[in-house]
Design a protein around this nucleic acid. Structure first.
Lengths: 244, 244
DNA sequence: ACCTGAACACCGTTCAAGT
DNA sequence: ACCTGAACACCGTTCAAGT
């Protein structure tokens, strides 16, 4: 007289009206899933539950999970752009603002952001972020070759660092705390003769989650970018004086 | 008269001798799996096949998959250290050497490295890499607080950027090529009135896989680090002159 | 055309059974 | 004590069946 192994989640299975799903509704449901209880994985089953629809209904609107993920990643870029002030005369300040917003958005949606660092969404809002960053590099005075290169280097640096922060935030809480604990315990108790340098500074090791880390890395990249932009502008002035 | 859905991989199932497995053998098998045909995922099934053992036999030697992954990550650090010259007077050169080696090792083992950026292995070889980097920061002239901070910022920067390169390399080939293609096609054909900056430089956009990207980012971080070290040393000299 | 239901080939993990 | 085999709860994905 035992129940079947897996019984339906809802006793009365309401049939979903036709044409009631869309890419937009699915994307919104996926974000609600990822925010529910902090660290829930984004699966078709969970999105289906959230929508009150069959998991495989999603395949009518996205070819596969990768296409859904790219759409979610582009939605992160949309959030980064939302309310962003227009480009200013301060190109370096604008770059810093974009970087900070990117990281904040990533930490708000770590379950999506953890997969976003190495991917190219190739969608509207990503295009617009790239357009902004390249614009900053051109206002800095870089020529086309340098602007393209420094866009790539700066953009990938921001994505990599922010996605890494998101990956830590997306770990299941037990694993995440074990990693953080390693810096409070393991790295504080290493033999001093084998690890003299760690021992010398261990009391001051910043947490992996200290937001100053990202701020400092950002400041360092901008240090160098400002100096290189100054030299690029000076180089071009010299070129003009000597008649090309 | 049909065959059963899943038949055994080997007709004669040789029984593995007792005590014939170990953490070391399992780690070696996992790396062989990850290198076979470029991008094979590391699963207990695949490692078991590689060892000629039952997949669940691994649980006798690692508590769960996360513990195996941390051991594999530490093995990457071991490879980074293998043959590394002793610390030199050129602390910045030593930092660059460590960064380049880390990235090369990560690209040699992308299936492991893609998960390593945000994790703390808390094992011997990671300790030794951390010891090295902190040593460089102290030789640069930073005090304990700054050495700890710049270790964290520089170390996480290298891990994040290298892990991002590994993540791209670990994508299944079809997905990876589609991402690379976006920069050769989609970003080359955007409307010029909406994306003037992208259009101005699009011919010069470096590939995601161009190794110059990492070299440039590294050079920029070291630019700033050298300047900050110089100022830290000058600040300490001034402090000594004024009697603390 | 859009959604459901069943089935498939995989995952990591647990646990009882062999030796 | 160490390895195997079966079972479980979960993945993404395909495909036939409903409406």
């Amino acid at each position: 007289m035992s129940l079947p192994a897996s019984r339906p989640k809802r006793a009365v299975k309401a049939r979903r009206p036709r044409n009631s799903l869309s890419q937009e509704l699915i994307i919104e449901a996926a974000f609600r899933v990822s925010e529910r209880s902090g660290a829930q994985a984004i699966t078709f089953q969970a999105i289906g539950d959230e929508l009150g629809a069959h998991p495989t209904a999603i395949y009518r609107h996205f070819r596969d999970k990768d296409e859904l993920m790219l759409a979610l990643i582009d939605a992160l870029h949309a959030e980064t752009l939302d309310g962003l002030p227009a480009p200013s005369a301060d190109w370096a300040g604008d770059l810093a603002e974009l970087a900070r917003r990117t990281r904040e958005v990533f930490l708000r949606h770590p379950q999506v952001a953890q997969f976003s660092g190495a991917r190219t969404a190739r969608r509207e809002h990503e295009f617009r972020v790239v357009e902004r960053v390249i614009g900053c590099m051109r206002r800095a005075g870089f020529d086309e070759v340098d602007a393209a290169r420094y866009y790539r280097v700066y953009g990938d640096f921001v994505l990599a660092y922010a996605a890494q922060d998101a990956e830590l935030a997306a770990l299941d809480p037990v694993t995440r705390k074990a990693d953080l604990r390693a810096w409070k315990v393991d790295y504080q108790t290493l033999p001093v003769d084998e690890y003299p340098n760690i021992n010398a500074v261990s009391a001051h090791l910043p947490s992996l989650e200290d937001p100053v880390n990202f701020e400092r890395a950002l400041a360092m990249m901008l240090d160098s970018l400002r100096e290189r932009a100054k030299q690029a502008r000076a180089g071009r002035r010299a070129q003009r004086r000597t008649g090309r």
